[in-house]
Simulated scan of single mutants.
Amino acid sequence: MTRARTRTVVVTVLAVVGVAFGAGGCTAAPGQDRPLVAVTTNILGDVVSEVVGDAAEVMVLMPAGADPHSFEVSAQEAARLRTADLVVENGLGLEEGVSRHVRAAADDGVPVFTAGDAVEALESTREDDSGPDPHL
């Protein structure tokens, strides 16, 4: 990813985090002093962790090396996702096994930031012309 694209993603994540955690916008669970940001992939988890620092707990769903197309979350992670203060996903069809849980969280009112919507994705180099490359 170019520096300009990286900067765009980071600035957009900062803006979304700022809105989600703005005055009165944080819904941290009782006994927790930090809001929860659930992130679908470990690479985005690294970016979000750098952006929010200690201001939020970052729960990364997919460990390094997991196949984002087939990865499934546990029932406990799915429940926690639905009570997060913010969900950050890649989008663009990358997290096929997690997408229904992200939609359920959104249906419950959890704000969802889709990184793929904030950048101009590269077109796929595959011959089937399957659309944008989800690998930011």
Score class of each variant (00 low, 15 high):
A4I: 11
P134Y: 07
T114S: 15
M1S: 11
V119G: 00
V73E: 03
L86E: 01
G25V: 09
T41C: 05
V52H: 01
L14S: 12
A84V: 04
R34K: 14
V51L: 01
V88G: 02
A64S: 12
G18M: 04
E120C: 07
V47Y: 00
Q32T: 15
A121I: 03
V112I: 06
L94Q: 07
E72L: 13
V119T: 08
G18N: 10
A106M: 07
T125R: 12
D85Y: 07
R103M: 09
I43E: 14
D46W: 05
M1L: 11
V102A: 02
T40R: 02
P30E: 14
V37N: 01
A23N: 13
D85W: 06
T2H: 08
F21Q: 03
A55N: 10
G25K: 12
E95L: 05
P63L: 03
A56V: 09
G24F: 11
T40G: 02
R103Q: 13
L94V: 05
T6G: 07
A29Y: 09
A28T: 10
A29C: 08
A38V: 15
T41P: 01
T125W: 06
A28C: 14
E95Q: 03
A118L: 01
V102D: 01
V58I: 05
T6C: 06
A64N: 10
A105E: 09
V112H: 02
E77F: 03
A104F: 06
V88I: 14
L44P: 00
H101N: 09
D67R: 09
A15D: 15
D107G: 13
G97N: 04
A56Y: 02
A84W: 03
D108R: 15
D67T: 05
H135F: 12
H101V: 07
S74F: 06
V60R: 11
G53M: 01
R80H: 08
V73K: 01
P111C: 10
T114C: 10
E120A: 13
R100C: 11
C26W: 13
V16A: 15
L44E: 01
Q76P: 00
S49P: 00
V112L: 03
G22T: 11
S49F: 02
L136H: 04
R34G: 04
V102M: 05
N42H: 15
L81M: 15
E95N: 04
D85K: 06
S99M: 12
V51N: 00
G45C: 03
E95Y: 03
Q32A: 15
